[in-house]
């Protein structure tokens, strides 16, 4: 038993050492900001980071591989689709490989009238809207960490509104394309296009649900300063979805 006691003392001393080391490492950042009216107590973590935030970043890292795979599946399917389209014409086929004959290919695609002529101005607008929602999201987080709950609600609601507008735009786009003859199972291109953009849409919808929950909690005064991190986490997710759209917008819409 006495051994154990000695041990505990050892631990005590070393523990203090460790704590001092941590403190040393942080002196330049660690301003004490009295944000915890609830007696909020943080705990020792090895990296000094929040578990939740670390987890969210890990999850987003994983999502990179997910969207990467979807985007490459789209690109490959599109390439195959074009090759299939012009397969009857060996010259063009060779041309595609060399990167020439693009106008001819474009013509053929237009003739086949299966790839929708993207409505670039329309999509640009909805991209812009999604970008804007990132701004409002980040302002929402800013508000909550400053304790301005009214602004929090305003910005959350705006973000939701913008996100919903984006989704409405996507629904509109899908229906238009569908009427123009681009069906889900008609061509490889159709399948790939709807899957990729639809998957992104599903992510936006998931984000909307989260934002809705935040807003609801905030109206009940349950989303306060000490929970600012929750808003930040939802924000991270939301910005990530936005980033993915940045990629999709360029790769799918702008690059023919």
């Amino acid at each position: 038993m006495s051994d154990t006691d000695i041990n505990v003392e050892d631990i005590d001393a070393a523990g203090a050492d460790a704590a001092v080391a941590v403190a040393d490492a942080t002196t330049d950042h660690a301003e004490d900001h009295g944000h915890d009216d609830h007696g909020h107590e943080e705990h020792y973590t090895s990296l000094g980071l929040s578990n939740m935030k670390l987890a969210m970043w890990l999850f987003l890292g994983s999502e990179c591989l997910l969207f990467g795979a979807l985007i490459s599946a789209y690109l490959l399917s599109k390439t195959r689709f074009i090759i299939e389209l012009v397969a009857g014409n060996p010259n063009v086929l060779a041309g595609i490989r060399d990167g020439e004959n693009e106008s001819l290919v474009q013509e053929m695609i237009a003739e086949a009238s299966v790839e929708p002529i993207f409505d670039i101005p329309f999509t640009s607008l909805s991209s812009f809207i999604l970008l804007m929602s990132s701004l409002t999201m980040v302002l929402a987080h800013k508000s909550v960490s400053e304790g301005n709950y009214k602004n929090l609600r305003i910005w959350l609601a705006t973000t939701m509104l913008l996100g919903a507008t984006f989704m409405a735009g996507q629904v509109y786009e899908f229906t238009t394309f569908y009427r123009e003859g681009l069906t889900y199972n008609g061509t490889v291109f159709g399948t790939a296009f709807y899957t990729l953009t639809g998957f992104h849409g599903a992510h936006v919808t998931g984000g909307l649900i989260m934002l809705g929950s935040l807003l609801f909690l905030s109206t009940r005064n349950k989303m306060q300063k000490d929970r600012a991190e929750t808003v930040e986490l939802v924000g991270l997710y939301w910005h990530f979805v936005d980033i993915v759209w940045v990629l999709i917008f360029t790769i799918v819409y702008l690059i023919p």
Binding site: E63, L66, Y184, N185, T191, F199
Partner: peptide
């Protein structure tokens, strides 16, 4: 796992869309 599972997930989702919803992947 973190980085490999999503790749399988996508492969399987593509298969799912092919099989359940007549996709063409």
């Amino acid at each position: 796992l973190l980085f490999a599972i999503p790749v399988l997930t996508v492969a399987q989702l593509l298969l799912l869309f092919d099989r359940q919803f007549d996709g063409n992947f």
